[in-house]
Simulated assay, not measured.
Amino acid sequence: MKRENVTHLLATDLDGTLVGEQEMTAFLLDYYKDRPYQVELVYVTGRHYASTMDLINDEKLPMPSVLISDVGTEMYDFNDPALHERWKKTLEEQWNPDAISRIVELCSGLMPQSIPSTHRLSYYAESDEAVEDVKRKLIDSSVPHKLIYSSGRDVDILPPNAGKGEALSFLIREKGWEEANILVAGDSGNDRDMLTLGYPSVIVGNCQEELKELPDHPMIFRAQRLCAGGIHEAWEHFFEKAAAVK
Protein backbone atom coordinates (compact mmCIF):
# COMPACT_ATOMS: atom_id res chain seq x y z
CA MET A 1 0.00 0.00 0.00
CA LYS A 2 1.62 3.26 -1.12
CA ARG A 3 1.22 6.43 0.88
CA GLU A 4 0.62 9.32 -1.50
CA ASN A 5 2.24 12.75 -1.59
CA VAL A 6 5.31 11.94 0.50
CA THR A 7 7.74 14.68 -0.47
CA HIS A 8 10.15 14.65 2.50
CA LEU A 9 11.25 11.77 4.71
CA LEU A 10 13.60 11.41 7.66
CA ALA A 11 14.88 7.86 8.20
CA THR A 12 16.78 8.01 11.46
CA ASP A 13 18.41 5.88 14.08
CA LEU A 14 17.22 6.68 17.60
CA ASP A 15 19.85 6.30 20.35
CA GLY A 16 22.68 8.74 19.81
CA THR A 17 21.01 10.21 16.72
CA LEU A 18 17.46 11.52 17.07
CA VAL A 19 17.67 10.89 20.83
CA GLY A 20 20.50 11.97 23.11
CA GLU A 21 20.22 15.75 23.39
CA GLN A 22 16.67 16.54 24.54
CA GLU A 23 16.75 20.23 23.68
CA MET A 24 17.95 19.53 20.14
CA THR A 25 15.39 16.75 19.65
CA ALA A 26 12.61 19.17 20.64
CA PHE A 27 14.10 21.88 18.41
CA LEU A 28 14.27 19.56 15.39
CA LEU A 29 10.68 18.35 15.81
CA ASP A 30 9.44 21.93 16.15
CA TYR A 31 11.48 22.88 13.09
CA TYR A 32 9.71 20.18 11.07
CA LYS A 33 6.31 21.45 12.23
CA ASP A 34 7.22 24.85 10.78
CA ARG A 35 8.14 23.50 7.33
CA PRO A 36 5.69 24.17 4.47
CA TYR A 37 5.74 20.43 3.77
CA GLN A 38 5.07 17.26 5.78
CA VAL A 39 8.13 15.33 6.97
CA GLU A 40 7.41 11.61 7.11
CA LEU A 41 9.24 9.88 10.00
CA VAL A 42 10.80 6.42 9.79
CA TYR A 43 12.69 5.15 12.85
CA VAL A 44 15.45 2.66 12.06
CA THR A 45 16.86 1.25 15.28
CA GLY A 46 18.81 -1.61 16.79
CA ARG A 47 16.30 -1.82 19.63
CA HIS A 48 13.59 -4.46 19.61
CA TYR A 49 9.95 -3.43 19.31
CA ALA A 50 9.00 -3.22 22.99
CA SER A 51 12.19 -1.38 23.90
CA THR A 52 11.59 1.09 21.08
CA MET A 53 8.05 1.77 22.23
CA ASP A 54 9.34 2.41 25.75
CA LEU A 55 11.87 4.90 24.36
CA ILE A 56 9.22 6.68 22.26
CA ASN A 57 7.06 7.06 25.37
CA ASP A 58 9.91 8.06 27.69
CA GLU A 59 11.28 10.67 25.27
CA LYS A 60 7.81 11.78 24.13
CA LEU A 61 8.71 11.23 20.49
CA PRO A 62 6.05 11.31 17.78
CA MET A 63 5.01 7.94 16.47
CA PRO A 64 6.67 7.22 13.14
CA SER A 65 4.85 6.20 10.00
CA VAL A 66 7.09 3.12 9.92
CA LEU A 67 9.30 1.50 12.54
CA ILE A 68 12.26 -0.61 11.41
CA SER A 69 13.61 -2.32 14.51
CA ASP A 70 16.07 -5.07 15.50
CA VAL A 71 18.84 -3.82 13.17
CA GLY A 72 16.57 -4.04 10.15
CA THR A 73 15.02 -7.45 10.79
CA GLU A 74 11.57 -6.24 11.87
CA MET A 75 9.35 -3.71 10.09
CA TYR A 76 6.06 -2.19 11.26
CA ASP A 77 3.97 0.11 9.09
CA PHE A 78 1.17 1.38 11.29
CA ASN A 79 -1.03 1.97 8.23
CA ASP A 80 -0.19 -1.34 6.53
CA PRO A 81 0.23 -4.20 9.07
CA ALA A 82 0.84 -6.73 6.27
CA LEU A 83 4.18 -5.09 5.48
CA HIS A 84 5.69 -6.87 8.49
CA GLU A 85 4.86 -10.28 7.03
CA ARG A 86 6.08 -9.34 3.55
CA TRP A 87 9.45 -8.29 4.93
CA LYS A 88 9.65 -11.34 7.21
CA LYS A 89 9.06 -13.65 4.26
CA THR A 90 12.05 -12.23 2.39
CA LEU A 91 14.31 -12.95 5.37
CA GLU A 92 13.31 -16.60 5.80
CA GLU A 93 14.84 -17.83 2.56
CA GLN A 94 18.49 -17.98 3.69
CA TRP A 95 18.24 -17.85 7.47
CA ASN A 96 19.76 -20.72 9.46
CA PRO A 97 20.16 -19.51 13.07
CA ASP A 98 20.87 -22.99 14.48
CA ALA A 99 23.90 -23.45 12.24
CA ILE A 100 25.17 -19.96 13.10
CA SER A 101 24.71 -20.55 16.83
CA ARG A 102 26.74 -23.76 16.65
CA ILE A 103 29.61 -21.94 14.95
CA VAL A 104 29.58 -19.06 17.44
CA GLU A 105 29.69 -21.53 20.33
CA LEU A 106 33.09 -22.67 19.03
CA CYS A 107 34.43 -19.13 19.48
CA SER A 108 35.50 -17.48 22.70
CA GLY A 109 34.93 -13.89 23.71
CA LEU A 110 31.29 -13.56 22.70
CA MET A 111 28.45 -13.37 25.22
CA PRO A 112 24.84 -13.81 24.00
CA GLN A 113 22.44 -10.91 24.39
CA SER A 114 18.86 -11.65 25.36
CA ILE A 115 16.98 -10.22 22.38
CA PRO A 116 13.39 -11.32 21.58
CA SER A 117 13.88 -11.61 17.82
CA THR A 118 13.63 -14.56 15.44
CA HIS A 119 15.83 -13.09 12.71
CA ARG A 120 18.73 -11.81 14.75
CA LEU A 121 21.44 -13.34 16.91
CA SER A 122 23.14 -10.75 19.10
CA TYR A 123 26.26 -10.88 21.24
CA TYR A 124 28.59 -8.71 23.30
CA ALA A 125 32.19 -8.99 22.12
CA GLU A 126 35.09 -8.88 24.56
CA SER A 127 37.55 -7.77 21.88
CA ASP A 128 38.05 -7.03 18.19
CA GLU A 129 39.98 -10.30 17.97
CA ALA A 130 36.94 -12.28 19.11
CA VAL A 131 34.88 -10.64 16.35
CA GLU A 132 37.51 -11.45 13.72
CA ASP A 133 37.57 -15.08 14.87
CA VAL A 134 33.82 -15.54 14.48
CA LYS A 135 33.91 -13.71 11.14
CA ARG A 136 36.50 -16.18 9.81
CA LYS A 137 34.64 -19.22 11.07
CA LEU A 138 31.32 -18.07 9.60
CA ILE A 139 32.91 -17.30 6.23
CA ASP A 140 34.66 -20.68 6.20
CA SER A 141 31.36 -22.41 6.97
CA SER A 142 29.61 -20.83 3.95
CA VAL A 143 26.45 -20.36 6.05
CA PRO A 144 24.59 -17.34 4.60
CA HIS A 145 24.67 -14.44 7.06
CA LYS A 146 25.43 -10.76 7.61
CA LEU A 147 27.61 -9.82 10.58
CA ILE A 148 27.47 -6.25 11.90
CA TYR A 149 29.91 -5.02 14.53
CA SER A 150 29.16 -1.67 16.14
CA SER A 151 30.00 0.56 19.09
CA GLY A 152 33.08 -1.53 19.91
CA ARG A 153 31.05 -4.29 21.56
CA ASP A 154 27.79 -5.19 19.78
CA VAL A 155 27.76 -8.07 17.31
CA ASP A 156 24.57 -8.77 15.36
CA ILE A 157 24.33 -11.74 12.99
CA LEU A 158 21.41 -11.46 10.60
CA PRO A 159 20.03 -13.03 7.43
CA PRO A 160 22.24 -12.02 4.49
CA ASN A 161 19.54 -9.76 3.02
CA ALA A 162 18.75 -8.02 6.34
CA GLY A 163 20.20 -4.93 7.99
CA LYS A 164 19.08 -1.32 8.19
CA GLY A 165 20.05 -0.51 4.60
CA GLU A 166 18.29 -3.49 3.05
CA ALA A 167 15.18 -2.85 5.14
CA LEU A 168 15.05 0.83 4.26
CA SER A 169 15.53 0.09 0.56
CA PHE A 170 12.70 -2.47 0.69
CA LEU A 171 10.44 0.06 2.41
CA ILE A 172 11.14 2.83 -0.09
CA ARG A 173 10.39 0.48 -3.01
CA GLU A 174 7.23 -0.86 -1.40
CA LYS A 175 5.88 2.64 -0.77
CA GLY A 176 7.01 4.21 -4.01
CA TRP A 177 9.03 6.85 -2.19
CA GLU A 178 12.01 6.86 -4.56
CA GLU A 179 11.42 10.47 -5.64
CA ALA A 180 10.99 11.88 -2.12
CA ASN A 181 13.59 14.10 -0.47
CA ILE A 182 15.08 11.55 1.92
CA LEU A 183 17.58 12.17 4.71
CA VAL A 184 19.16 9.16 6.43
CA ALA A 185 20.73 9.73 9.86
CA GLY A 186 22.94 7.56 12.06
CA ASP A 187 25.79 7.41 14.54
CA SER A 188 27.23 3.87 14.62
CA GLY A 189 28.40 0.91 12.58
CA ASN A 190 24.98 -0.70 12.33
CA ASP A 191 23.86 2.44 10.46
CA ARG A 192 26.62 2.16 7.87
CA ASP A 193 24.69 0.24 5.21
CA MET A 194 21.78 2.71 5.24
CA LEU A 195 24.07 5.74 5.28
CA THR A 196 25.74 4.48 2.09
CA LEU A 197 22.58 3.80 0.06
CA GLY A 198 23.17 6.94 -2.00
CA TYR A 199 20.49 9.11 -0.42
CA PRO A 200 21.42 12.33 1.38
CA SER A 201 22.79 11.10 4.70
CA VAL A 202 24.19 12.54 7.90
CA ILE A 203 26.74 11.16 10.32
CA VAL A 204 26.03 13.09 13.52
CA GLY A 205 28.85 14.81 15.38
CA ASN A 206 28.90 12.30 18.25
CA CYS A 207 29.32 9.29 15.95
CA GLN A 208 31.22 6.15 16.89
CA GLU A 209 34.78 5.67 15.64
CA GLU A 210 33.73 3.15 12.96
CA LEU A 211 31.83 5.86 11.07
CA LYS A 212 34.72 8.31 11.22
CA GLU A 213 36.56 5.85 9.00
CA LEU A 214 33.82 5.84 6.35
CA PRO A 215 35.15 7.29 3.06
CA ASP A 216 33.99 10.79 2.17
CA HIS A 217 31.13 11.03 -0.33
CA PRO A 218 29.12 14.03 -1.59
CA MET A 219 25.90 12.47 -0.31
CA ILE A 220 27.30 11.93 3.20
CA PHE A 221 27.30 15.01 5.44
CA ARG A 222 29.52 14.96 8.52
CA ALA A 223 27.73 17.13 11.05
CA GLN A 224 29.50 19.16 13.70
CA ARG A 225 26.52 19.17 16.06
CA LEU A 226 25.48 16.26 18.22
CA CYS A 227 22.46 13.99 17.76
CA ALA A 228 19.33 15.79 16.48
CA GLY A 229 21.37 18.98 16.11
CA GLY A 230 23.38 17.19 13.44
CA ILE A 231 20.19 16.12 11.68
CA HIS A 232 19.01 19.72 11.56
CA GLU A 233 22.41 20.82 10.25
CA ALA A 234 22.24 18.26 7.43
CA TRP A 235 18.58 19.01 6.62
CA GLU A 236 19.48 22.65 6.08
CA HIS A 237 22.48 21.63 3.97
CA PHE A 238 20.67 19.23 1.65
CA PHE A 239 17.19 20.67 1.36
CA GLU A 240 16.80 24.23 2.58
CA LYS A 241 19.96 25.68 1.02
CA ALA A 242 19.27 23.80 -2.21
CA ALA A 243 15.73 25.23 -2.28
CA ALA A 244 17.08 28.74 -1.66
CA VAL A 245 19.47 28.43 -4.63
CA LYS A 246 16.58 27.50 -6.92
Rank of each mutant, 00 (worst) to 15 (best):
L183C: 03
A223D: 12
Y124P: 02
E209Y: 08
L41R: 12
M75D: 08
D58M: 15
L9S: 01
A167E: 13
C107Y: 09
K135Q: 14
L171W: 07
S201H: 09
L91C: 10
D30I: 00
T7G: 03
A185M: 15
L195G: 00
K33F: 04
M63E: 13
G152D: 11
N181V: 05
W235G: 00
G165M: 14
I115N: 06
V6F: 05
P62K: 07
H217Q: 12
S169M: 15
N79A: 15
A167F: 12
A234P: 02
S169Q: 15
G20C: 05
A11G: 11
Q208T: 04
L83F: 11
L61H: 08
L211T: 02
R192C: 09
P81A: 08
I231P: 02
P81Y: 10
R136C: 03
E40G: 05
E105S: 06
L168M: 08
H232W: 06
P144C: 07
P144W: 09
M194R: 12
V131W: 08
Y32C: 03
L110G: 00
D54T: 12
Y31V: 00
P36V: 07
L214F: 07
D54L: 15
M219P: 01
V104Y: 09
S69P: 01
R86Y: 08
E166P: 00
D77F: 09
V19F: 06
N190H: 06
R86G: 00
S169G: 07
K33P: 03
N161H: 10
I182C: 02
F238N: 01
G152R: 10
P215V: 06
R192W: 14
V42D: 04
D191C: 04
R120G: 03
H232Y: 09
L10S: 02
L138E: 04
Q94S: 02
A125S: 03
R225Q: 15
L41F: 13
A130V: 11
I203E: 10
D187N: 15
N96I: 07
E179D: 07
T25L: 09
I220L: 14
M53C: 05
L138R: 03
I139M: 00
F27E: 12
D140I: 11
R3S: 12
L158D: 00
A99C: 01
E129L: 07
F170V: 09
P218T: 09
L171G: 05
